[in-house]
Write a protein that binds this DNA or RNA. Structure first.
Length: 598
RNA sequence: GGGGGUGUAGCUCAAUUGGUCAGAGCAGUGGAUUGUCGAUCCACAGGUUGCGGGUUCGAGCCCCGUCACCCUCGCCA
């Protein structure tokens, strides 16, 4: 049994506590020994306090303090002293005082950590993930997780104030087709049957509308067995919400309110409302993406019409079936090596090539293909690009979608490289008027999901020109990241049937997969709509980070392994048998190599 | 599956053209030190240069393969 239970935290003591007897518990961050005089910085999640072991105290106390190592867990009893003016440490909030130790209790010793917990040196993410519990002890990670907690708390407060009801729904669900690849969980009771881990609570939240809950929300974990990115994990957290008897703007208003409340509660910032709105078509044309980063300009321009007759074949050919568009990097010069690197970058994302032109004094264009351009094309490029002497323009000639996406990626890439992205700025925007369907190899597919309502005025085009039909869908974008997406749903059986038919889904198939939902909609489904916000991305952005793993306690690597616990792991033959599962070696010969278990 | 990047001491990094280049700081260990706070000083210890192969008189460096991690395209209704 240990004795010295803390009376204060390590971030709490100030000059007004001077003279008090206190007990602190925490981890040894560092020990500085000056002979008989020893300083120990004691750390907990609240802060850091300097403990003094003075030679005036018992010899045993000083000897024990001298034996302390970093990350030992200790309890110290002592008196709060005001520090002399010249020994005040202005870097920490407890820097005006120190605790003059009277008693020391070692609660636990610790091995030397593989990396320092104090953060004067960067540590590779691989090592951090392997010893995640130590990484999480570092102040920056504690800040991240505590900020995330504040986000969650602000969400619950805001949703409650707005009269939403928090309702939990199952994670073990039935596989429904479409959307992300599912994780499957074999059923012990039914050989050959599987649960799927919910990729989102979509269907349940619509059912809760049928059930009359009117305003539902949930902070739900979602599971998607897709490839990972800096902003994507296998399991992630959503604020999922749904409302009845609403139109699009009601949902948008409610979620704007949540965002405003979060930013106010976490950062004390007033986010201006209403958020900007941008149509999908405009976003794609001007920013080359449906999630534009509005913190900087650098819009994409188009000279397709102007170069259609060009003697430069690349332009003339592209203008026939596609577009010729470009970006302007103002006041930035690029060496041949720089543009080669950029060309490799755009080719890596599917571009055929990258045209770069420099604007000389007097407006003359120079560089690679400049000599092929007539005065008419060069003039058009100058006008549309708005480029001045010293600027560089980059151009892509390709099919429209490709040109847009390549320039969109290049826009972000250049802005980051040229340091043109203002930090600590939050630019929310809604992207609306999404197309209802997209082309696939087999025909057309729902762009959002098959329960999304088409715009009323587009209903008549549904069968004739489905690709022109727009949906009552909306995405919330922040600083170039999609942080939410939702829609007004179809609540009428006849329209839902038309959509399913367009998607080529047979009645039999629908009965098997969605029968319960379609039936539910026949028992009085109110008009409804909703949205889901990505909490991990939102937390990442509010912290100014560029990686979702830094706001997730125990994230997985890009190859979907957990470097700490070594998952995924093997199971026993007995477990497999019980689940009626047999492991088959694949055609490549053998199972993929498992992550090493330490 | 494709494109790009990284891998050297426990941690973070350096090592000219392939040639005394196996090095530094931090951490660690031992010692010194009465006001530090990323303490300082002295000393010591610490290496399969991710792994396997190849080229070469000689490879951390070049080539091939492979593994791990990161960014990205596809994928993510």
């Amino acid at each position: 049994m240990w004795k010295l239970k803390r009376t204060h935290t390590c971030g709490e003591l100030r000059v007004q506590h001077v003279g008090q007897n206190v007990i602190l518990n925490g981890w040894v961050e560092s020990r500085r020994n000056f002979g008989n005089l020893i300083f120990v910085d004691l750390r907990d999640r609240y802060g850091k306090t300097q403990v003094l072991f003075s030679p005036d105290r018992a010899q045993e106390l000083v000897a024990l303090a001298d034996a302390l190592k970093n990350e030992w867990v200790i309890a110290v009893k002592g008196v709060v002293r005001r520090r002399d003016t010249e020994t005040v440490n202005p870097k920490i909030v407890t820097g005006e005082i120190e605790v003059d130790a009277i008693e020391l209790e070692v609660l636990n010793e610790a091995k030397t950590p593989p990396f320092p917990i104090s953060e004067h040196l960067a540590v590779s993410e691989e090592t951090r993930l392997q010893y995640r519990y130590l990484d999480l002890r570092r102040p920056s990670m504690q800040r991240n997780l505590i900020t995330r907690h504040k986000v969650l708390h602000a969400i619950r407060t805001s949703m409650d104030r707005q009269n939403f009801v928090e309702i939990e729904t199952p994670y073990l669900v039935k596989f429904t087709p479409g959307g992300a690849r599912n994780f499957l969980v074999p059923s012990r009771h039914f050989p050959g049957r599987f649960f799927a881990l919910a990729e989102s609570p979509q269907i349940f939240k619509q059912l809760s509308m049928v059930a009359g809950y009117d305003r539902y929300y949930q902070i739900a974990r979602c599971f998607r067995d897709e490839d990972l990115r800096a902003d994507r994990q296998l399991e992630f957290t959503q604020l999922d919400m749904e409302m009845s008897f609403v139109q699009r703007d009601d949902v948008m208003d409610a979620i704007e309110q949540v965002c405003v409340d979060i930013w106010k509660a976490v950062l004390g910032l007033e986010v201006p409302r209403p958020f900007a709105r941008l149509s999908y078509a405009d976003a794609m044309r001007e920013y080359g993406t449906d999630k534009p980063d509005l913190r900087f300009e650098m819009k994409i321009w188009d000279v397709t019409g102007e170069v259609a007759e060009s003697g430069f074949k690349v332009f003339a050919e592209a203008a026939k079936a596609g577009v010729v568009r470009g970006l302007t990097a103002s006041g930035a010069a690029f060496s041949r090596k720089d543009t080669d690197v950029l060309e490799t970058f755009v080719k890596g994302i599917g571009a055929k090539g990258l045209i770069s032109l420099k604007v000389e004094e007097g407006g003359k264009l120079s560089g690679g293909v400049a000599k092929f351009l007539g005065e008419r094309e060069a003039g058009a490029i100058r006008v549309k690009s708005g480029a001045k002497a010293g600027d560089t323009v980059f151009m892509i000639a390709d099919e429209e979608e490709k040109a847009a996406s390549v320039l969109g990626a290049l826009r972000n890439h250049l802005a980051a490289r040229l340091d043109r992205i203002p930090k600590e700025q939050f630019r929310f925007c809604w992207v609306v008027d999404f197309p209802m369907f997209e082309k696939t190899d087999e025909g057309i597919a729902a762009r959002h999901h098959p329960f999304t309502s088409p715009k009323d005025e587009h209903l008549e085009m549904l069968e004739k020109e489905p690709l022109k039909v727009q949906a009552k869908a909306y995405d919330l974008v922040l600083n170039g990241f999609e942080i939410g997406g939702g829609s007004i749903r179809i609540h009428r059986r006849d329209i839902q049937q038309r959509i399913f038919r367009l998607l080529g889904l047979t009645d039999e198939y629908l009965r098997d997969r969605f029968g319960f939902l379609l039936e539910a909609f026949e028992y009085g489904a109110p008009p409804h709509g909703g949205i889901a916000l990505g909490i991990d991305r939102l937390s990442m952005l509010i912290l100014g980070l560029d990686n979702i793993r830094d706001v997730i306690t125990f994230p997985k690597t890009q190859r979907t392994t957990d470097l700490m616990m070594g998952s995924p792991g093997t199971v026993t033959e007995k477990q497999l048998k019980e689940l009626h599962v047999r492991v088959v070696e694949d055609a490549e010969g053998g199972r993929a190599e498992l992550p090493s278990v330490r």
